[in-house]
């Protein structure tokens, strides 16, 4: 209860800060607009104002402050402008429309999910192999760990273009990027999880003369679940970033990444911000969903 209040306070403070930041960020553009509309601005003329600080302009033109929250193409749109844009492009548009964020969100989401499923599946398989084969452990594991320190997302543009040149386009190239971005965290996390049972627990199974497979299903796999979910959450976030970045280099026309890029070409800041928030909401929903599954699963298994 107290923490909910604290979170709300912090969020409210952030929103207030955002509104406050809009004023100095947008004041110059706003003054040009209101002056054009016939208002008295001190000092008159954009050239006169060039040398002045934003705060000085605000102090002399207090009347223009509300207008900084209502510009059409502000440098920093106000929270309600983004909220209105989000509402207009989700609830008010048909979802098949090219201007619907639901449509763009789905394009990105489908690539994310496909890639995530492939990446996670392969990641778990490799982790099982690593835990059971000493050669694989020693050969592959160091490279999997090193991969965590490398910005492998830099491969994204190349994958899109190369796959395009061999005739593969649409969802698959983006899914490939999503897959390899989620692959490595899952491998590393899952290996850690499968190794998490301590020596005593393993010795206990040895006293039962349990086979490797029995050890895997009855001890290693259940013990790895908290680690698996932790890496799944990292993996899905990485997958989403992969899908968004995968939409950048080709001049794709659909997807949240395409919306970001188009917005930045045409200076449509409100569109950029709403695409950004759509991506954030999507990420939060995916991570939250995994968190929910985690809680239900772990409770069923008596681990939480």
């Amino acid at each position: 209860m107290r923490s909910a209040l604290a979170v709300l306070t912090v969020v409210a403070a952030l929103v207030a800060f955002w509104y406050a930041a809009c004023v100095p960020m947008n004041i110059r553009g706003t003054l040009v607009e209101v002056e054009r509309a016939g208002a008295q601005v001190v000092p008159p003329g954009a050239a006169q104002r060039r040398g002045m600080g934003a705060w000085g302009l605000i102090a002399r033109n207090g009347f223009a402050v509300p207008a900084t929250w209502a510009q059409e193409r502000p440098r920093l749109p106000a929270p309600h402008q983004v909220a209105v844009e989000l509402w207009n492009t989700t609830a008010m548009k048909k979802i098949t429309s090219k201007r619907s964020l639901v449509f763009h969100g789905w394009v990105t989401l489908s690539a994310t999910l496909l890639g995530f499923v492939i990446g996670t599946g392969l990641g778990i398989l490799l982790a099982v192999g690593i835990v059971h084969s000493r050669v694989m452990d020693m050969s592959v594991m160091p490279w999997a760990i090193v991969s965590q320190t490398i910005p492998i997302i830099a491969l994204a543009p190349m994958i899109i273009v190369v796959m395009y040149s061999v005739g593969v386009q649409g969802i698959v190239p983006k899914a490939v990027i999503s897959a390899y971005l989620s692959f490595f965290p899952v491998v590393v996390g899952m290996v850690k999880g499968l190794r998490s049972p301590d020596a005593m627990q393993l010795d206990l199974l040895r006293t039962y003369n349990a086979s490797n497979a029995q050890g895997f299903w009855k001890l290693r796999l259940p013990a790895s679940m908290p680690y698996l979910f932790a890496s799944l959450k990292i993996g899905i976030a990485a997958s989403l970033v992969g899908a968004i970045v995968g939409e950048l280099p080709t001049g794709a026309v659909a997807g949240l990444g395409a919306r970001l890029l188009a917005g930045s070409y045409y200076g449509q800041t409100v569109q950029i911000w709403s695409a950004l928030f759509a991506a954030a909401i999507l990420a939060a929903a995916l991570v939250g969903l995994l968190g929910l599954i985690e809680r239900v699963t772990l409770r069923r298994m008596g681990m939480a």
Binding site: K233, V245, L276, A280
Partner: peptide, 14 residues
């Protein structure tokens, strides 16, 4: 956990 890289176009603009 959010895709922060998405802020890139905004910050490039600023």
């Amino acid at each position: 956990a959010l895709p922060i890289v998405g802020t890139a176009p905004i910050l490039v603009m600023w």
